[in-house]
């Protein structure tokens, strides 16, 4: 009986998840892959780094997602003078001339907060990073002499990777807290580009966001459902062996005969994926398998999220860091191309 209930839940939630994807795809064109990854992150309850230039629709995308899953959406801009307190509260003079203190964007919505967008997080100081990372891990914060719980919050953070002045690169340990780094690029399709330029409906982000039905998902039930999903979707021994091979390949790619055209593979990797990262990989793979209406994880499920989950976790030698994006993409692709399943 319990199994039947679980099956029904899985089916119902999958229908809702696909409905959310379709709704967001209707307003954010050319980003189907990113939308799929965000959906996976939401159901895997993982935080997301967004990779991409300015003006590609990240805010609209996140607002649409927030509207679809329900709950509140908050946003903060990373600046060099941003302090941790700015996330927690802000002070102002009230109408009566007396100083007033209100909750900051992190606490303002309380438990209703479902999506928190930290734009250009690398412009903020490490102190801010530290607070943010702690909240991401613990999902609660002590302020105003009480405990603020943020159980349904998913953090989306954008990194400005173009400008290096007045930026504070997120250290590898901090990057590891993010489940995924999702690339959001300008669509290559010429017709889509034309539509983005000339279709007036894309000129009003707020109007676009309103087109997504609100509350497709119930944000306050996502944690429980995520646990159910993770328990239900199984991984075979063969797949576990494959995942272990992938993990070892991120640590010592040369041992698997992997080479790169533009880097010395023996000197490239300083540290491979972390255990937390590999755990997140399988977590996300299970969500993908569920979205594909399977009860077992296939290698394709891992492939679907491998780059997004592993690439930002790789620690390269400093001489290669300035080419991190290209090298990480190339390395993860080579790993997937070289590691076979079954291998033994």
């Amino acid at each position: 009986m319990e199994t039947l209930v679980s099956q029904n839940q899985l089916t119902d939630w999958r229908d809702h998840a696909l409905k959310l994807e379709q709704a967001v795809q209707g307003v954010i064109v050319g980003q189907d892959k990113a939308i799929r990854h965000i959906t996976i992150a939401i159901f895997a309850r993982g935080h997301v780094l967004l990779e991409g230039g300015v003006g590609v629709g990240k805010t609209t995308l996140l607002q649409s997602i927030a509207r679809g899953i329900g709950g509140s959406y908050e946003r903060i801009e990373g600046t060099v003078d941003l302090m941790p307190n700015d996330l927690v509260y802000h002070t102002y003079l009230g109408s009566d001339g007396r100083p007033q203190i209100d909750e900051g964007p992190l606490l303002r919505s309380g438990e209703r907060l479902s999506v928190f967008f930290f734009n250009e997080i690398n412009r903020a100081r490490p102190q801010v990073h530290a607070l943010m990372l702690r909240v991401m891990a613990e999902r609660h914060l002590h302020a105003f002499k009480r405990e603020y719980r943020l159980p349904h919050m998913v953090v989306f953070a954008d990194r400005n990777q173009v400008e290096k002045n007045e930026t504070f690169e997120i250290p590898s340990a901090a990057r590891d807290r993010f489940m995924m780094e999702i690339p959001i690029h300008i669509p290559d399709d010429r017709d889509l580009r034309r539509a983005l330029m000339f279709d007036t409906r894309f000129q009003h982000a707020e109007t676009l966001t309103q087109q997504v039905p609100s509350g497709i998902l119930q944000y306050d039930q996502l944690n429980a459902f995520s646990d159910l999903l993770q328990r239900h979707i199984q991984a075979s021994e063969t797949l576990e062996e494959y995942a272990l091979d992938l993990w070892e390949a991120t640590q010592d790619p040369a041992r698997f005969g992997i080479t790169l055209d533009s880097a010395d593979i023996h000197r490239l990797v300083q540290a491979g994926a972390s255990p937390r990262g590999m755990g997140m990989l399988l977590k996300a793979a299970r969500v993908h398998a569920w979205l594909m209406n399977r009860e077992h994880v296939y290698p394709e499920d891992i492939h679907a999220v491998f780059h997004e989950i592993i690439a930002h976790r790789l620690v390269f030698q400093s001489m290669y860091e300035n080419r991190r994006t290209a090298l990480s993409r190339e390395l993860t692709s080579r790993i997937l191309a070289h590691i076979a399943v079954p291998a033994r």
Binding site: T238, Y298, P299, E300, H303, L336, A337, H338, I339, A340, V341, P342, A343, R344
Partner: peptide, 23 residues
């Protein structure tokens, strides 16, 4: 059965030059 699958998968991988999957 798994061993037979392994041989055939390895053949596909060898011919293709990289690991081949359903996709």
């Amino acid at each position: 059965e798994a061993q037979a699958l392994l041989h055939l998968h390895q053949a596909f991988d060898r011919v293709h030059g990289v690991s081949l999957f359903a996709a």
